[in-house]
Amino acid sequence: MKGFRFGSTEGSFYILPGKDGWEASFGNETLGAFDSPQQAADDLARGVCCPHLSESDTSTLEIPEKIADWEIVHV
């Protein structure tokens, strides 16, 4: 099974298969559930899914919007 990783200056973001689709995470924090990895990457890049990460606005971390620009990881 494959997932996706982006290493930012604040740490690594992951988009991995979840129970009902895909889940994005940062550290030990789950950031949300998504229908597709592309939707997760887009929302992370725009900073719309993570208001509870008050220390970091994900839209300022240069997270790629295209999932093809993320590193593939095997889980």
Rank of each mutant, 00 (worst) to 15 (best):
S12R: 09
K66D: 13
L61Y: 01
T9F: 05
I67C: 01
S25T: 11
E62G: 15
S59M: 04
R46H: 09
L61N: 06
G27T: 13
F26T: 13
P64R: 00
L61K: 02
K19Q: 09
D69Y: 14
E55S: 13
A45G: 00
I63L: 06
Q38K: 09
D69K: 08
T30A: 05
D42I: 09
P64F: 03
H74R: 13
D35Q: 04
G27I: 11
D20F: 06
K66Y: 14
F13D: 00
E23T: 15
D42R: 13
S8C: 02
A41M: 04
S8K: 01
F6D: 00
V48W: 04
I15F: 01
G11C: 01
C50E: 09
E29Q: 12
R5Q: 11
D42A: 14
S12E: 06
R46N: 09
L31R: 03
F13I: 04
A68Q: 15
D69W: 03
L16C: 03
A33F: 15
S54G: 05
Q39K: 13
G47I: 01
F6T: 04
F26C: 03
H52W: 13
Y14G: 02
R46S: 10
P64E: 01
D20A: 05
T30Q: 12
H74Y: 14
E23G: 08
P64D: 01
F26N: 11
Q39F: 00
R46G: 02
S59P: 06
